[in-house]
């Protein structure tokens, strides 16, 4: 049956099995491939999106419960890559292969909107995504720098 979704402020109607994970609705039905498939069991965080501003692992959100909420994906984090984290990620060469970084950015952005000046422990608990390239030190540094920048 068709479901009405709001993704990055845009309305979409998707006709798919109600159990289809939001991850695959985004990637496959809506063609928004920025949200990545990494594990499918909410372990890696590559599929992190915001649902009504809260980070969620979209591989665990069935289509039927994604209807009627506001979904924000990496494509909608900012209209022009101007989010401070996006700018710092570029400037500080955070990514290596980059595959996990959509999810990293979404997790980090959610953290900063909740805790504008996070401690290392805050980062550890909110940004627990897996990066096989080992970009963690730069992820941490970029989040701290973004926090410092927003205070200035």
């Amino acid at each position: 049956m068709p479901y009405d979704l709001t993704v990055n402020g845009q309305h979409h109607r998707v006709d798919a099995d109600p159990s289809t994970p939001l991850l695959w609705v985004l990637r496959d039905h809506l063609g928004m491939t920025g949200t990545k498939y990494g594990c499918g069991i909410a372990q890696c965080g590559a599929c992190t999106v915001h649902i009504d501003g809260t980070p969620a692992r979209s591989c665990q959100v069935p289509l039927e419960s994604a209807a009627g909420v506001n979904v924000t994906t990496i494509e909608g984090l900012s209209p022009d890559s101007s989010h401070p984290l996006q700018q710092l990620w570029v400037e500080m060469n955070v990514p290596q292969c980059g595959y996990c970084q959509s999810g990293m950015l979404m997790a980090a952005a959610a953290l900063l909107s909740k805790i504008p000046n996070p401690t290392d422990q805050d980062i550890d608990s909110y940004v627990d995504n897996i990066c096989r390239c080992g970009t963690y030190p730069r992820v941490r540094a970029a989040i701290h720098k973004a926090a410092a920048g927003s205070k200035a």
Partner: peptide
Amino acid sequence: TPTKLNNADIVNGSLIYGMDVRLPNMVY
């Protein structure tokens, strides 16, 4: 030490990995 050329496309999710290939009439 320039910023990497594909950083900009990574941070907004537009870089196309193998997993992101979308073609007309594609099936899975």
